[in-house]
């Protein structure tokens, strides 16, 4: 078993994610290239950040028709744990594994800075090592992080407790409500209804070593790696 870190042309956090999994968490992980069509023995999928296909058309849009995507779909549909970070979140929304879309930030700018997040649901595969309402700190770096959903969908997301992280500051001139990008309900991360797919705009991969200024990302990677470990490939019928 191993965790697949998917590399698209333009992914630029794939090495960071592989490094955290292998060297910080000690979990087996390997790159899976976008041109591959199956995930081999992998029991977890990490879709990393970056600018897949140059963000052409829309962030994450072209990844939707890449060769590896049907395998990721099958893996997720079979209940396998899938984590998307930043561009990975945008991709998971584009392919329909998560609800909503990530639009241009409210202030039209690329925002690269540290944010505080509140854990809105600590009862997920990915957040079970965090406390409910805990504040965690990690960086964001995106131009399209403005989470947008249709009104009928947002009610469902709230009711099913699919909101995992919300932006919680710092309060600044450009984000008086502590919401840096204009996301609906300050949403920074969500899970799918089944709870096995999570997407988040902030970067736990850039907050998993003390030298980087925060280790708040570690519990997320650890929980994800454990979920991948617990599921042997045999459990999936793909």
């Amino acid at each position: 078993m191993s965790i697949a870190v998917i590399t698209f042309p333009g992914s630029n956090c794939d090495r960071d994610c592989l490094h955290v999994l292998q060297n910080v968490i000690g979990a087996p992980a390997r790159f899976v290239f976008h041109k591959e069509t199956d995930l081999g023995d992998c029991t977890g999928v990490l879709v990393p950040g970056g600018f897949s296909y140059g963000d052409y058309l829309r962030a994450g849009a072209l990844a939707k028709i890449s060769p590896i995507m049907p395998a990721i779909h099958r893996f997720a549909d079979a209940g396998g744990p899938v984590l998307g970070i930043c561009n990975g979140f945008q991709i998971l929304c584009e392919v329909g594994l998560l609800p909503g879309a990530l639009m241009l930030n409210r202030n039209l700018r690329f925002i690269s800075r540290w944010v505080d997040l509140r854990v809105e649901n600590s009862d997920t595969l990915f957040t079970r090592h965090l406390w409910q309402d805990q504040i965690v700190r990690m960086p964001i770096a995106h131009a399209e992080g403005n989470f947008t959903v249709e009104p009928e969908t947002i009610a469902k997301i709230v009711a099913k407790q699919q909101i995992v992280f919300k932006y919680a500051g710092p309060v600044r001139e450009d984000s008086p409500d502590g919401n840096p990008n204009g996301s609906t309900l300050s949403i920074a991360g969500i899970v799918n209804e089944a709870g096995n797919v999570m997407g988040m705009m902030p970067h736990p991969d850039r907050a998993s070593e003390a030298i980087l200024g925060s280790t708040d990302g570690i519990p997320i990677f650890r929980a994800f790696a454990e979920a991948a470990q617990e599921k042997s490939r045999l459990e999936y019928s793909y």
Binding site: L57, R58, A61, L62, K64, I65, C93, E94, G100, A101, M103, T148, V149, E150
Partner: peptide, 9 residues
């Protein structure tokens, strides 16, 4: 439908 437009937005 598949690619050029995201039906959510």
């Amino acid at each position: 439908d598949k690619l050029l437009a995201n039906p959510i937005i």
